[in-house]
């Protein structure tokens, strides 16, 4: 039982980071119905921007983190302005295709600027490791869980308790109607991309702190796909649940299924669960069921 709790706990901490990644995809999808496939590259760029502030410029973390995240937000807004904005009003598929292109373009830019080297990444946050006779939770994943859930709550607060959030939700509901009510939908979309980029950067910094940062670190971003497909593409709560399911599922598979001989199952498990959920609920656990008349 202790073992199970340890495994679920470890999975929950990672799951919170995945939930944050899922949230970043959901907010963009809700606003523009586009799926951001470049999430992994946004993660790498955001992490590198923080890296510059903290490791290169030697700024203290309480200055480096906001500055790094701000820079990530500006990059997100700029990318939206240059690539997504011209496609407003067109089929969301074209925006999704653009994000696929962005994936490769951003990867090439990252390699051009920072190379393919691995950069050591030690945040040296206060050690809050929980170690008892039965349990062992490392400090870095706990910090990752704390930062992720705090960011998640902040975004939810921003969306549901501020005027800007109201405008964002209005645009998410119906762009044309929101514009008719005098909301600058184009600007709102830019804000959404900026927020999404900031959240991805938070997740990126936390994940890099587990090991190191490299141009290839963006692969973790792909975990957002099962997260949002399980939770529902347009459900913020679904992103949280989906993230936790994926995190716990990975952890359980690693602890209980792999030792039975199914080596490598940990990597496959999230997609396996995703398929089961999609068979039963094609729009995800909390996704809006669409009824289209043809």
């Amino acid at each position: 039982m202790t073992d199970l709790l340890q495994t679920v706990g470890t999975g929950t901490l990672i799951g919170l980071v995945y939930a944050l990644l899922g949230l970043c995809v959901v907010v963009i999808f809700k606003a523009s119905e586009a799926f951001n496939f470049a999430i992994g590259e946004f993660l790498v760029v955001g992490s590198f921007l923080f890296y510059i502030m903290f490791f290169d410029l030697n700024l203290p973390i309480f200055i480096a983190l906001p500055l790094g995240l701000l820079a990530a937000g500006i990059v997100g807004a700029l990318i939206e302005y240059l690539t997504i904005k011209p496609l407003l009003g067109r089929n969301p598929i074209s925006m999704t295709m653009i994000t696929l292109g962005l994936w490769f373009f951003m990867r090439a830019c990252v390699q051009l600027i920072w190379g393919s080297d691995t950069y050591s990444f030690f945040l040296d946050l206060p050690d809050i490791t929980l170690e008892t006779e039965q349990f062992f939770f490392l400090s870095d994943p706990i910090w990752a869980g704390i930062f992720s859930i705090l960011t998640f709550i902040l975004v939810v607060f921003f969306l549901f308790r501020t005027r800007w959030g109201l405008a964002i939700r209005a645009v998410s509901e119906d762009q044309a109607k929101a514009m008719a009510f005098g909301i600058n939908a184009r600007f709102i979309l830019m804000i959404i991309w900026a927020i999404s980029s900031i959240c991805i950067a938070v997740a990126g910094v936390m994940i890099s702190n587990f090991g190191a940062l490299a141009a290839g670190s963006g692969i973790v971003g792909l975990r957002a796909i099962p997260v949002v497909l399980i939770g529902g593409m347009d459900s913020i709560g679904g992103a949280l649940v989906g993230g936790l399911i994926i995190g716990i599922c990975e952890s359980l598979a690693g602890a209980y299924i792999e030792p039975m001989g199914l080596i490598g199952f940990k990597d496959v498990a999230p997609y396996f669960v995703m398929l089961i959920v999609l068979f039963i609920r094609p729009y995800g656990l909390f996704g809006t069921v669409r009824i289209e008349r043809v």
Partner: peptide, 9 residues
């Protein structure tokens, strides 16, 4: 993403 599970095993 991380190596906690592997190390715990």
């Amino acid at each position: 993403t991380d190596a906690t599970n592997e190390c715990m095993t």
